[in-house]
């Protein structure tokens, strides 16, 4: 089991914003879907630092990302 970021797609799609993607320290991890206009997480690469949660919830007050527990293979 490990801790990763998870984007609430329906909430995220309301905003045309990708600030979380621009502040993730991991490359090719928090990605942006061009046509759906949502951020998405490559779970196997996420280290669970929650900087994206700080950007989305504390700075922008949009609350579209939460940290979740996943098991290998999810």
């Amino acid at each position: 089991m490990y801790y990763v970021a998870d984007v609430k797609e329906a909430d995220c799609a309301k905003y045309n914003c990708k600030q979380c993607v621009l502040f993730c320290p991991e490359p090719n991890t928090l990605m942006y879907h061009d046509s759906k206009h949502v951020a998405w997480v490559n779970y196997s690469r996420c280290k669970g630092c929650a900087i994206c949660v700080y950007v989305c919830s504390d700075l922008l007050k949009r609350n579209c990302i939460q940290m979740v527990m996943v098991t290998t293979g999810d």
Partner: peptide, 24 residues
């Protein structure tokens, strides 16, 4: 960023390291 394949790949730096962010 997040819409193209980045040059830097998975690396062993600590979670939340801002040096890793700067390098990205």
């Amino acid at each position: 960023l997040g819409q193209f394949k980045e040059l830097v790949e998975e690396h062993p730096m600590c979670a939340g390291c801002f040096m890793a962010y700067f390098i990205r």
